[in-house]
Design a protein around this nucleic acid. Structure first.
Lengths: 188, 188, 188, 188
DNA sequence: AATGAATGAGGGTTCATTCAT
DNA sequence: GATGAATGAACCCTCATTCAT
């Protein structure tokens, strides 16, 4: 109905969802802290039951949390691609990707062997963006064409991810990575 | 036979230790399967207690399992370095490293936040080997010198590892990686 | 009712805590029955996890259970001391101590080598009470002064405890103990 | 048969029994060290199986070990009784009993709820000895007769035992105990 | 007969989920 | 709808006993 109470509850539910999400994200960013439901609930100032109920299970919560981290990165990639074109978009996109993921080391430790549909979908999207950058750059002759664009996409995805996840990364690691990658992708 | 009696049972123990090790390794290679003590024991055809007792704890078992995977790779690196010199050793070493580790994707998911002394020691050794290859190659002028060798070492370590851990890697991924890396490390 | 909603569930929790405590106490009173967490939980009609969670560990539960037994005895000693003075307080206090502890034979079998802070604190208090009775009685010339009051305190504590813990005590054991003790403490 | 080998084996078995017994006794004397079969076996320089087989189970081993401790004490009591008569035997016997048991604090922690026939038998014997001392002393008019000798026996058994088991006993505790007991048993 | 590795039940504890309040 | 205590399965580990050697 149009009862204000119903709306208030709904608003509360939405707010709690957000609180749980932020708590999970925060916990994921701190390696060494296990993102148990109780820990998430405590950080969110909610009850454990609320956290579970808001998402229908812990996996779904993690799915949402990680998606929330990944989504702006993917969007950023799409926008960069539209604004700068494939050739010039790649490097700033990777910088963004690495910088963003660097802040969330703890993420993957608890994700192995769990089915996270939203994350999977976003990863697919992300791969598509990179793929388009690569094929575009190859079509413009900006990078080498002797490598399968799909393979290069995988290559970039994996390595960029690895650089981002480096614990206590040495100063200049990202720069070095991008330098080597850029030069390595140049026409031979 | 002429086997000393005292060694008879020990031979069995050694064999069972090996079985447990292999079971753990196998489980580690299959992402999605948690390497619980019971799962390892079942796969090895042993009792749970036996597995624990043989290593003194689950962590020690995992340490041994992962060490066992890493050790031949490190040794291979040392030998290649001695036989071929830093410049020519790098690529075959990375091929070996990637090929070997490719078979064990699940390894790291259960290693976050656990203290594995033997693995840590081997990783240090491995880093040292790569570091020597890089500094050697730089000294000979074979690769670019505008990058800090320590950073390059980290870069290679992380990315090679990521390539090796790629699930269902595309055909030619390793080749593409090595090609891009080699060209990217050339003098600019 | 007018019970605040926040306190509703807590009331149940308190009740279950009490149930667990009583179950542990009961088990402690029956020698031969090991007070395992599961046994306690079963007796209390609770789940094993609940029992652990309610106290934060088995040791803490035992600490609470034994403290609960000891506390009224100590309080009784303090009150008797205040009301009757050291000379006349000793005997009724020992009667109380023995009578109360008699009901809980099994207690100490499972306490060796465990750190129970609350119990230790209460024991210290109890020793202090007895010590004050002894020194007071000596000062008044009511009992012999050729023995170190600290030693006498230990002596009484140990022996009274032993009398209390006697399995299937003979009729008149406590009386005989108190008679012998009283006469033995008289001025020679 | 009269085969020397058969005799040797038997001799070995006897020797191993003794070794296991001594090891168990030693472990029992050290509070804080759990007398697990493996610990006993290690201390005895034997295999775990040997230790178990020699006695038919851990309980039987503990029974034998504790009996071994108790037996000389009982024998000492019998001899003192025969040599000195009931009146003069009591005090030196208690001194012996306390001194001997003092060295084996750890004993009882692992005995609650276990059936140890030999120990029970010895305890019965010990009680009989004390009982005879008490009744004898009463008959001679050396101690008070207003207390049931059976009760006094229990009283002495329990308290002497408690004094012996006192952890870190104060200097003079045993003396104080014997003084109070002696005076308390005098004719009123 | 001795060995000691293997066993497996049972210990305490953690944690995602459920449900009475 | 939110709560957080209760649940109970699953975790790792210990240890008395067994049994192949």
């Amino acid at each position: 109905m149009s009862t204000p109470e119903g709306g208030a509850r709904r608003a509360d539910a939405v707010r709690n969802r957000q609180l749980a999400l932020e708590a999970a994200t925060g916990l994921l960013a701190e390696p060494g802290t296990a993102p148990t439901v109780e820990a998430i609930a405590k950080r969110a100032g909610l009850g454990a039951g609320t956290v579970v109920r808001a998402f229908g299970g812990k996996d779904a919560l993690l799915d949402a949390a990680v998606s929330g981290l990944l989504e702006p990165v993917v969007r950023c990639g799409t926008e960069l691609l539209a604004q700068l074109g494939p050739v010039r978009a790649l490097r700033p996109f990777l910088e963004e990707l690495i910088a963003f993921q660097s802040a969330h080391h703890g993420v993957n430790a608890y994700l192995e062997g769990v089915d996270l549909p939203a994350v999977t979908a976003l990863r697919t999207e992300l791969v598509a963006v990179v793929h388009e950058m690569i094929t575009g750059a190859q079509a413009e002759g900006a990078i080498r064409t002797d490598l399968d664009p799909a393979v290069v996409t995988t290559l970039i995805g994996r390595t960029a991810y690895a650089i981002a996840r480096t614990p206590a990364p040495a100063e200049g690691l990202t720069d070095a990575y991008l330098t080597v990658l850029t030069d390595g992708l140049r026409r031979p």
